[in-house]
Every structure is written in structure tokens, then in C-alpha cells.
């Protein structure tokens, strides 16, 4: 019997859902093994009953639950709890679900500031009141799903990778363990390390030095070339079976989308410490908090104190 699968999406762009689609051919095999019972992106499943007759939101029971997106509203919170109740195994899909993702950058300011900015101060917006009717109230900040309910497995990445999603689901269905790497992106990065000392950062637009067509293990570490790279503080795995990290393959430094290597890790502090040691003036780094926590702002970003 096919395993039942439920999927919910919260504060998210929908990219991780596309990733499921991107699994490609293996998806066909996978679909044979699962029965999708709830997935708003695919089907219009009414939460309050088909006629809206129920007082509480309800999701069908499932063996596997997927949640993409962080928690931004009271409704997300309730839905997450409902998913937890109904799903045997709950998976956080993508960095938004795992760490808050890009939406969690909003945690740099208070909800009130956020609303003011969006609905009042934005030049492209008419100065109206805040929306208030029929809309679930925003939470005080963006939460990772694991901050609200227990999560059994995290599949980080922005978006996460098709290979990982398929791998995780297959492992789950076949009763095999599935674990994330505890290594950093550098572990999989083939570039050459010569001398870290860097005093100035270069802009992304400038582009690194490399020989087109030559293997990446002949290119010098992008950080050593002056491009701020989050590799050392970012979990590896984006490269999948091929190994080489995704951004590096594109001659770009790691953005950190796979999030920190461990729950306890503090990528900003770790990177700032390392960068200042090799001689980089820490003041050079623009928008530190957002740069190092671009995908992991839930619980790591907070509004600057009022002085």
C-alpha cells in the first residue's frame, strides 16, 4: 500500500515544491509508492471541511509530512501543529522550514516596523492602514518549524536539492536511515588553498579568476580571491552525489543556503572570527547579520537594540 503523504507550505516562495518536480524521472517511481493526501500547491483541499463546516483546521492523516516555509502567522503555527498531529514522520523541506530562510531576514526588525515599512513607508505603496480583516495575525517573528513543533528530518537548501528529497523519501519508505552531512562546504570544495590573508573584499560582479574549461581543482579558493564565501560555516551536501558544491560549480562563492553545520553553531560569529583573524577589516563586511544568516535567521536574527 502506498504511503500517504501530506505537504504544507508556509512562508515560502514555492521553490522547494518545484524541487520536488525537479526530481525528474525518479519522481515517477516515487509517485508509485506514495499517495498524496494533502498538498495545497497541487490540490484545493479545504482546511475547514469541504463546506467550511468545521471550527478547526484539519488535515488528513499521513505517514509522511512535508513542510516548506517558516512560520510567520498564527495560522502557520496551528497548521504546523496539525501536521505534527497527523503525520508520523515530519520533514522540514528547504531552508525556510529548517532555519526560517530568506523570509526570516524580516527578524532584523520588529513586526510593527515591518508593517510600517511595507504598508506606510514604501514609496510604491499608498499610505493606507494595515490589513486586518480575514487575515491571520503575524507572529512576532519568523520561526523555523522546529521552533514550533518537533521535526524528524531537515532537508536544507534554498531550494533543497531534488536528489536529497528523493533520497530522503526513498530511505524513509524503505526504512533506511537518512542523515545529513556534518561537514562544511569546504569539505566538498575542490578549489586550491594557498594563502588566506585577505585585506579587501571584491564585489560579486567582478568575477573570480579561473581558466574556463579547466577543472575546479585548478581554481584558487574564492575567499582567497576576495569573494566573501560562507563555505566554512555552511553544511555541505548541496553538491549531492557529484560532490562539488552548487555555487562553486557556477564560480560563485557559497551563499550559505544549506544553513549552519549544527543547530548550536553561530555562522556569523564563526565567520567573523575567522575573517578578522586573516586580516580582513570586519567593518568591510556589509550587512553582517543578513550576510551570514541569510538563510538561517529564525532564532539567530533579532532587531537592533534601541539606543
Amino acid at each position: 500500500m502506498a504511503a500517504r503523504l501530506a505537504e504544507e507550505w508556509f512562508a515560502i516562495c514555492g521553490g522547494c515544491e518545484v524541487t520536488i518536480l525537479d526530481i525528474g524521472e525518479p519522481l515517477l517511481d516515487l509517485l508509485e509508492k506514495v499517495q498524496i493526501v494533502h498538498m495545497p500547491v497541487l490540490m484545493d483541499h479545504k482546511l475547514y471541511g469541504q463546506t467550511g463546516e468545521k471550527a478547526e483546521m484539519e488535515i488528513p492523516e499521513a505517514e509522511v509530512g512535508l513542510i516548506s516555509g517558516g512560520i510567520r502567522s498564527d495560522e502557520h503555527k496551528l497548521l504546523a501543529q496539525e501536521m505534527r498531529r497527523k503525520c508520523k514522520t515530519l520533514i522540514a523541506l528547504g531552508s525556510c522550514a529548517c532555519y526560517g530562510g530568506v523570509p526570516a531576514l524580516a527578524n532584523l526588525c520588529s513586526t510593527e516596523e515591518l508593517l510600517t515599512k511595507v504598508y506606510r513607508e514604501s514609496v510604491t505603496t499608498d499610505r493606507n492602514g494595515f490589513p486586518h480583516e480575514e487575515i491571520p495575525a503575524l507572529t512576532d517573528r519568523v520561526y523555523a518549524v522546529s521552533e514550533v513543533v518537533k521535526i524528524d528530518l531537515m532537508l536544507p537548501g534554498c531550494p533543497t536539492t531534488p536528489e536529497m528529497v528523493a533520497g530522503a523519501l526513498n530511505a524513509l519508505l524503505e526504512g533506511r536511515p537518512f542523515t545529513l552531512s556534518t561537514k562544511s562546504v569546504c569539505d566538498e570544495c575542490p578549489t586550491i588553498r594557498e594563502k588566506k590573508a585577505t585585506s579587501t573584499l571584491r564585489r560579486r560582479l567582478e568575477g573570480p579568476t579561473f581558466t574556463p574549461g579547466a577543472p575546479l581543482n585548478q581554481m584558487r579558493c574564492l575567499m582567497e580571491q576576495g569573494f566573501l564565501c560562507n563555505g566554512p560555516a555552511t553544511r555541505s551536501g548541496c553538491g549531492g552525489s557529484e560532490g562539488t558544491p552548487r555555487c562553486i560549480r557556477a564560480y560563485m562563492p557559497c551563499e550559505g543556503c544549506f544553513g549552519p553545520i549544527s543547530e548550536k553553531a553561530n555562522p556569523m560569529v564563526d565567520m567573523m572570527g575567522a575573517l578578522s583573524t586573516i586580516g580582513l577589516d570586519p567593518k568591510q563586511i556589509p550587512d553582517r547579520a543578513a550576510t551570514f544568516n541569510r538563510f538561517s535567521g529564525a532564532g539567530r536574527l533579532r532587531p537592533a537594540p534601541k539606543r
Partner: peptide, 18 residues
């Protein structure tokens, strides 16, 4: 080196709301 890290720490305290 500690002095350089201290500079970084001072900057980050803002980010932590300290």
C-alpha cells in the same frame, strides 16, 4: 589577532542586541 577579533565582536554585539 585578538584585537582584530575584538573589533568583530564589538560589531556583532549590535546584531545580537547587546
Amino acid at each position: 589577532k585578538a584585537a582584530r577579533r575584538a573589533e568583530a565582536i564589538t560589531l556583532m554585539l549590535q546584531d545580537f542586541g547587546i
